[in-house]
Amino acid sequence: MDGVTYYLYGGTIRKCKSKRGPKKSRTEGEEKSSSQFTEVRKMWRIYRRATGGLPIWRTWARATGISKSDSAFHSVNGGCLRPGKGVWAFPTFRFSMGTLEAPVITDVARDGWSVTLRWENDADRPKASASDQVYLGYFYNTQPRSPQMITCHNAHRGDGEVTMEIPAAGQPDGTPLHLYLFFGNENPDRFSPSEYAGI
């Protein structure tokens, strides 16, 4: 008030000169950065619900020395999102990151809402165990702000392929799908980077 700030300290009212100047308006760059940050935060909340609390990004943050899982998600996927629109760069978006070996997709087929993915299946080794669980993240092309995920309970890395029924969710027949195949160990506390396939 009148250039003086009043505050309570140790039960006593004190005052000092207000050091704050008038609030400056934000630049266009600051506005864009703020909008981008807001979009990533929204995506992060929806993504966490879709993955049912799998510790994918917490594990990746720990492995890379990043202090928080949402910061790790932002550093990898921030450029794939546009304010107010969601994901625009589907092929570069990462549904998962991790230290297990990534899948190498060799074939993708679709029949209605049923999708089949095949991948290379090399020898069983520490970072590519045949028993690794298969996960499939996906977006409907019409919903770039709504990631979804299926845990393929009866499919493992050693199978070399998986066929899953994607819920139609009221989408028109033939709506393009953006698929993200990745693996997790049995615990699950280790994951692979996701591999993209559009169909």
Rank of each mutant, 00 (worst) to 15 (best):
S75P: 04
A102T: 12
W88E: 05
G84E: 02
K23I: 01
A197S: 10
G3W: 08
L136W: 14
M97I: 06
S75T: 07
A109F: 05
C152W: 03
E28L: 11
R145I: 01
Y7F: 15
I150V: 14
L81F: 10
T151H: 15
E39P: 11
A89E: 05
L81G: 03
Y138Q: 03
R20V: 10
R157D: 11
R145F: 05
E120M: 04
D107F: 07
Q133Y: 06
W119F: 07
G112W: 06
M97N: 10
G53A: 11
S35Q: 15
G86P: 11
W113Y: 10
Y180L: 09
N187C: 13
E186V: 08
D173A: 05
P193V: 03
R145L: 05
D124V: 06
E30H: 12
D132I: 01
M149L: 15
H74Y: 12
F183N: 14
N77V: 13
I46E: 11
G98D: 06
R157H: 06
T38Q: 15
P91C: 05
K15A: 09
E186T: 08
P147K: 03
S71C: 02
S192N: 04
M149W: 11
G86W: 10
S194T: 12
P55T: 00
T142K: 11
E28T: 14
L54P: 12
R14A: 08
V40Q: 00
L8H: 15
A102C: 04
